[in-house]
Write a protein that binds this DNA or RNA. Structure first.
Ligand SMILES: [Zn+2]
Ligand SMILES: [Zn+2]
Ligand SMILES: [Zn+2]
Ligand SMILES: [Zn+2]
Lengths: 134, 134
DNA sequence: AGCCTTGCTGATAATGATTGTCAAAACCAT
DNA sequence: ATGGTTTTGACAATCATTATCAGCAAGGCT
């Protein structure tokens, strides 16, 4: 059976305390910064579990790192992510769901899944960038 | 200025000869298999260049590997990919384009880009899977 | 509470993709 | 052909992630 350990709780808590997507490495550093002696491998395992059970969302940064986030809902949804500060906004399900499925079926594909993420600069970071280029 | 080398041509050719998305490593192996002595680092560099100039599309597999493909058009488009055999179908631009932009603007984001890919099992692989589970 | 079984943890090694290094080789305008 | 520059490639270095595996601890049991 699955056991309850303070490590798992710590990872879940650290995820909750974070607004945007975070890497396993970053989360491990953050936990250490608070004095937690949790091991890196354990953070990886906990995140993988959370992602499997749907308690956390995961995606890959454009640089190829796996990022995780505790989302407000375990319903299927997508994200709008600031590529500068990591601010993340959850996007409601939309016709894109139907479209993704239709296009798969139309081509004879089964067991279709889709990756849909929008990256950009949030309002705050947009302002900073504009200011720095004046 | 940018120079013409047989290595670049070899990489471009190997990409063209391939239907689906391929990893740099796989492409390097394929080239070696044909007797080409091209170096691995060179393949990585050539692919990065091709992706930068828009001569090749790139995406990350669900496992985190960078994959490349020579597409029939350099217009913006998306892909339907068989996660088993790599067969790739180019998807026409669609309302999803407008939607991605709208959702970004509505949240104050600028310089929005999006990642939209559909993974599944192509008809052939679906049949194989069904047969093996009988 | 004490014991036992078994999953969980963590230090470390291993893996594997990607990038950095830098001398030698290849390009190309002159 | 020559020379300044770019590109190549063998190899080392990085870096995230996974595998090991002995020791620890959670939970069930008595
Ligand atoms: Zn931001
Ligand atoms: Zn969706
Ligand atoms: Zn297939
Ligand atoms: Zn698009």
């Amino acid at each position: 059976m699955k056991r309850n350990t303070w490590q798992r709780e710590a990872v879940r808590g650290a995820l909750d305390a974070n607004d945007g997507f975070v890497s396993a490495q970053a989360l491990h550093s953050a936990l250490h910064a608070t004095g937690s002696p949790i091991g890196l491998a354990t953070v990886y395992r906990a995140l993988a579990d959370l992602a499997t059970t749907g308690d956390a969302d995961s995606l890959q940064s454009p640089e190829g790192e796996s990022l995780y986030r505790a989302c407000s809902t375990n319903e299927h949804h997508h994200h709008l992510i600031c590529r500068n500060c990591g601010l993340t906004i959850e996007i409601e399900p939309h016709a894109v769901e139907q479209w993704a499925n239709d296009v798969a079926v139309a081509n004879g594909f089964t067991q279709a899944e889709h990756i849909v993420d929008v990256f950009g600069l949030c309002a705050a970071c947009s302002a900073l960038t504009a200011a720095s280029t004046l």
